Amino acid sequence: MPGHLFPDSPVLTNSARPASRIDSTSSAIPTPIPVGLFPSLPESQAGSPPKTSLVRHVLLQLQPFLESGERECEVDGVTPALLAELKAHMIQNGQAGVWESLRVDFRPDKLIVRLPTLGHEIMSDLFHVMARSGTGYPESYGSSTIIEDGSADIHYRSGGYKTPDFSLYEVKDGKGVVNDDDNTTPTVAFEVAYTQTSRNLVEEAARHICFTMGRVLLVVAIDIIHERNTHPRKLHSVTWSHWEEDVRAYGVVTKQDEEEVNRVHAERRHGENDTLHVLPPATAFSALMSVPGDDKKYHIRVTETAKWELFSDPKISRIDILHRHLYRDPDDADWDTPAFSFSVSDIMAVIFKHEALQEQSDRKSKRGLAADLETLSVLEARRAKRQNRAGPSSQQAV
């Protein structure tokens, strides 16, 4: 776990630690702040309100999060300016590595910090590679900009939410914004299956689209499969697939339907039954959706629109993300043209890198297990020797 955000600060006790969620605009400070606790907080810009106390709030919230086993921390009331102040403080105090190791997602007035997942790390590394080579998504398109929002939650219209491995958001500058969902629901979500089954992966893709009523325009599902019973692990396949709403199948359902609402159903041919036979992952799903406060029900259908094998026999050198995937209202002339592309060689280079890291981790875990077993063997031998020297026990086992 990363170290202290501010090395000279005292460790907060459980009773003194702030709650797992705070509002940085609150005037109440969770714990007394000793003088000199933040010796190098950046100065606020001239004419702007001082943000020193607000940065204190955020840091006091993040410190116990890093020391505990929690996976997520939220801080409300964080503005873009405050986020910049916080990042500057971390860098100036030698904590840039801590900052980079975390999944830092930002939404309007909310900072979300999570520990990284392998899927998030793969996608984050891939986008960093593309940014360095200048092949990433466009900086702007009309009044829209694209924001990497990492693994922030996708809130479903039917209630609840789910966190993808990575996501891209289109943020519009006023024009063309239907409601807040346009800016707070990603247009593209990424899911990476490393230990997850292929069937669960594609169901997750379908849920993102169905449960947002099609506001997620594209889900990229990356299925990484290893050979069975191989040590060290060996790659078997890497499949990249695209999932989109079948807009022609959308409709309002007025008649009573016995189909269960707000649940995706795999579409199978007549006679196929998931409960009786082991079938390959479905390539289409449908759902009957209900929305709180609306008596109508809506039929949503999701299909796999493209699929490529990237490891054993790649047939392509790049994978395009189209304007209609990335933007909600692209120009007609741009509808089916690429907004940006992933290089297959970049994708596989990042995956190979993480395969090597996982192999190192596996070896470390194996060495740790071997050491534990050796220690246990020594302790058992020592106990047996003491038992022999002690003679028969005077107590009978109950």
Results as ranks from 00 to 15, higher is better:
L12F: 02
P116N: 01
D334A: 15
E245F: 02
E259N: 04
P42H: 11
T117L: 13
R263H: 10
L41P: 09
V104E: 00
P314Y: 06
S124N: 07
G391C: 09
P30Q: 00
V253F: 08
S361Y: 12
G77M: 07
F311R: 05
P314W: 04
H155Q: 07
N179T: 10
D294N: 13
P392D: 05
D313Q: 09
I91T: 04
L357I: 14
G77F: 10
P232A: 09
T52E: 15
H208P: 04
R386C: 11
H155N: 06
Q360F: 10
E148V: 03
K385W: 14
Y156W: 03
P338N: 10
S48N: 12
H4D: 11
Q395N: 12
L41Y: 11
E355N: 15
E100I: 10
P50Q: 05
T212F: 01
W240D: 04
P138F: 07
V220R: 01
M90H: 09
K385Q: 14
K385D: 10
V278Y: 08
E258T: 13
T283L: 05
E374W: 05
G136C: 02
L235W: 09
V252G: 05
P30N: 01
G391N: 07
S143Q: 13
L83T: 00
Y141T: 06
E43D: 13
A339C: 10
D8K: 14
D332Y: 07
A189C: 09
L102G: 03
V202K: 03
T52M: 12
A287Y: 03
L310S: 06
A371R: 14
Q360S: 15
L86H: 04
W243S: 03
L54K: 14
F190C: 03
R383A: 09
E259P: 06
S48Q: 12
G134H: 03
V129Y: 00
R382K: 14
S158A: 09
L37W: 15
K51Y: 02
H277K: 11
D331N: 15
V378A: 04
F65E: 06
Q95L: 12
V178P: 13
Q45V: 15
R17Q: 07
G77Q: 11
S158C: 14
R114P: 06
L201I: 03
R56N: 13
P80T: 02
T187V: 06
